[in-house]
Design a protein around this nucleic acid. Structure first.
Length: 683
DNA sequence: GTTCTAGAAC
DNA sequence: GTTCTAGAAC
């Protein structure tokens, strides 16, 4: 991030230039707030006062009132202030934001949303080493605070919000604030907010998900004439609403009109197809939304689409048009689109003018490299999703995490594959192009939803909406070959008498055995004996009887174990993508007390959406003909969270010492539909 | 699936 | 120095 000289305080008033800044740090203990303040105060030539609640009482912790008092006196002296306290929820921040009522100031938020494990380990360090207990205490404090966090929003009254998710982000933000003199300031708006880099920190998904639908943006029902200055980006219907910030954190696809510019597709027909496809998809993209973007207010396509969408009563919160540069939607238009579509050429090459040149240009060489990894060319009517590396400026400045390249039909005789006037073919290709684009966007949304659901609450209802999408993209996966070590279960299923290692029951349809490396006190596998069902993705409606048998046998064994030990709790389910060949049901006690549970993958394979409860699998197969799979690798690298209280832990040993003592009740979704089996439920 | 181990993190 | 993770080999 850097300061853009052109955007530095363009109002020109001398007084304005000396406006102090109230910089509110937002972050858990250990997120680096004090380090941030120290650095800024050391290098900045602007006069800063640090308002730190931890030390405000003569070096000891003080009160919020003391912080406010110091803030007031400092502002009166014309000094800028750094509010160094957690400020994680809206209420905690509001008193400091209200300082703008009595002082002429800009209110900034600097969000230090670093991985929970990092904050915890830093807190542990700070509180001293007094054995493991101290670590547990620090984790508990950080976890408790993180439960409360609410992402700051512009509409709380901030002039500017800077989000930091890793040390690099923090360094950039420190440099930025450190470079401020008493006269320059930073442009307003929301910067760096991201929703999708879940591999870095899955925990933020829940944080960002709690957003309201956009309130003010509507696709106008009346045909107003647009008189707004063409250089000002904003919702295309009304200039007055430009000041209203868009809600960020909602998965949003910004897309240009395909084929109408360079490829000379008829605008009337194109607008009809856009609206038709939007209508078809608008309810298939979860809480996501679609935004048609065009650079100029005079654009015919926008007004045609707008009026057609209004006639069809398409929800204006889910679909609207927007005037602005598709490569600067966040920085100039304050509209965060985590996904943008590119009107690509068939060679997927940069340059050539128009949207394609602009996007490749703004994204830097990273996009070209990432694109080449995916494909070398594109057929008309198709699209391809390219995850944007975080090093790309489009990612860091605009919050774009994916670019979807789309190729529409060509009606321009000067370009290759021209359809001339064959609109029958042309319309079909254009429809295909939008279908492919919106499907690709839907898969991105689905993956994000699944990850955020996994972070505590499960949105079964929402998942149901995605029926059809994920499966399609996932089924494209080529079946992996099984390694020699992965055949053990298969061999046992086929010849249990020969390979009887650990086998405890042999029936016609299933074999039951103790897991050779149990991940809990009790851990058995119920293996299907039929040939041809290697894994969950092979399961279809015809396998419902075997699923039911496996479930019944698994339940019987769980009950047997519960008679021996009433304190156990069992869960029955399948791995979305098993390592061992031959469909097998895990019957596993929820203590996870085992020396064989050694790494993140072991934990997450039983404690993330990757683990599919047997009851849900049976229901899905009977309703949809096949089970849902959550086989994204991301689930394996998720933060380590307690299966009961959902607290985060920095590593496996810490997690294990926590779960050994955690007595919290299980999350709600596990308590429903018989997903968990207790002694009391059966006695 | 596990084991082994380099090297990152503490 | 020790602990812990993650990738390769099996």
């Amino acid at each position: 991030m850097e300061i853009d000289d052109e955007t530095i305080n363009s109002t020109g008033e001398e007084e304005d230039k000396k406006k102090p800044i109230v910089a509110i740090l937002v972050g858990a203990p250990g997120s680096g707030k004090s380090t941030f303040c120290d650095h800024v105060m050391r290098v900045s030539t602007r006069p800063w006062v640090r308002v730190c609640q931890d030390t405000i009482g003569n070096g000891k912790p003080g009160t919020k009132a003391q912080c406010l008092a110091l803030s007031n006196t400092s502002l009166k002296e014309g000094k800028s202030i750094l509010i160094d306290r957690c400020n994680l929820d809206k209420e905690q921040r509001s008193d400091f934001i209200n300082l703008k009522n009595s002082h002429k100031v800009d209110i900034h938020a600097i969000v230090l949303d670093l991985p929970a494990k990092l904050c915890i380990s830093r807190s542990v360090k700070r509180t001293g080493h007094e054995g493991n207990l101290q670590g547990g205490k620090a984790a508990a404090v950080v976890n408790r605070m993180l439960q409360k966090k609410e992402s700051p929003k512009i509409n709380e009254g901030f002039t500017r919000i800077t989000f930091c998710y890793n040390e690099n982000d923090v360094q950039s933000a420190m440099d930025m604030y450190g470079s401020l003199s008493s006269v320059n300031t930073l442009p307003g708006g929301c910067f760096g907010e991201k929703k999708t880099d879940s591999k870095v920190q899955v925990g933020i998904m829940k944080f960002l998900k709690r957003v309201d639908p956009p309130s003010k943006v509507t696709s106008d029902k009346t045909d107003k004439t647009d008189k707004t200055d063409e250089t000002t980006p904003g919702p295309s219907n009304d200039g007055e609403e430009e000041k209203v910030p868009f809600e960020n954190g909602i998965p949003t696809l910004g897309f240009p009109s395909i084929s109408t510019a360079d490829f000379q597709f008829n605008i009337e027909k194109a607008s009809e197809i856009i609206v038709e496809k939007v209508e078809e998809f608008v309810n298939k993209i979860g809480n996501g939304r679609l935004v048609l973007v065009d650079l100029s207010h005079g654009s015919k396509i926008l007004s045609l689409v707008k009026s057609k969408a209004a006639k069809k009563n398409i929800d204006p919160k889910k679909f609207f048009t927007f005037v602005g540069d598709i490569t600067k939607l966040q920085s100039q238009g304050r509209l965060n689109c985590n996904v943008i579509a590119n009107a690509a050429n068939w060679r997927l090459k940069p340059g050539g003018g128009g949207v394609n040149a602009a996007i490749f240009d703004a994204a830097g060489p990273d996009l070209d490299t990432a694109t080449k990894k995916q494909a070398g060319s594109l057929s008309p009517g198709t699209s391809i999703t390219v995850p944007l590396p975080s090093t790309s400026p489009l990612f860091s400045k605009e919050g774009v995490t994916h670019v979807i390249h789309v190729l529409g039909p060509n009606m321009n005789p000067k370009r290759p594959n021209c359809l001339k006037d064959d609109y029958q073919k042309g319309c079909k290709v254009l429809r295909d192009a939008y279908t492919s684009l919106f499907e690709n966007f839907a898969s991105i949304v689905t993956i994000q939803e699944k990850i955020s659901d996994s972070d505590g609450d499960v949105g079964t209802e929402r998942n149901k909406k995605f029926k059809g999408f994920t499966e399609e993209s996932e089924s494209k996966k080529v079946n992996k070959e099984w390694g020699s070590w992965a055949q053990a279960l298969y061999k046992i299923a086929m010849h249990p008498e020969k390979h009887g290692n650990g086998v405890i029951e042999i029936l016609d349809d299933v074999v039951v055995l103790n897991d050779v490396y149990p991940k809990a006190q009790k851990h058995v596998l119920v293996v299907a004996r039929a040939e041809g069902v290697d894994r969950l993705s092979d399961v279809r409606e015809e396998h419902l009887p075997i699923l039911r048998t496996m479930h019944a046998v698994g339940m019987k064994w769980a009950e047997t174990f519960l008679k021996e030990n009433e304190s156990l709790i069992f869960r029955l389910g399948y791995h979305s993508e098993p390592s061992m060949r031959q469909l097998h049901l895990h019957v596993i006690s929820q203590d996870f007390d085992s020396k064989h549970l050694k790494n993140k993958k072991h934990w997450n394979s039983f404690n993330s959406p990757f683990f599919r409860d047997s009851v849900d699998v049976m229901q899905e197969v009977s309703e949809d003909g096949k089970p849902k799979l959550n086989d994204d690798e991301k689930f394996m690298s998720m933060e380590l969270r307690c299966n009961r209280c959902r607290s985060a832990h920095p590593n496996i040993p810490r997690l294990k010492s926590h779960i050994a003592i955690c007595k919290s009740p299980f999350p709600d979704h596990l308590l429903q539909n018989g997903r968990l089996l207790h002694a009391s439920t059966k006695l």
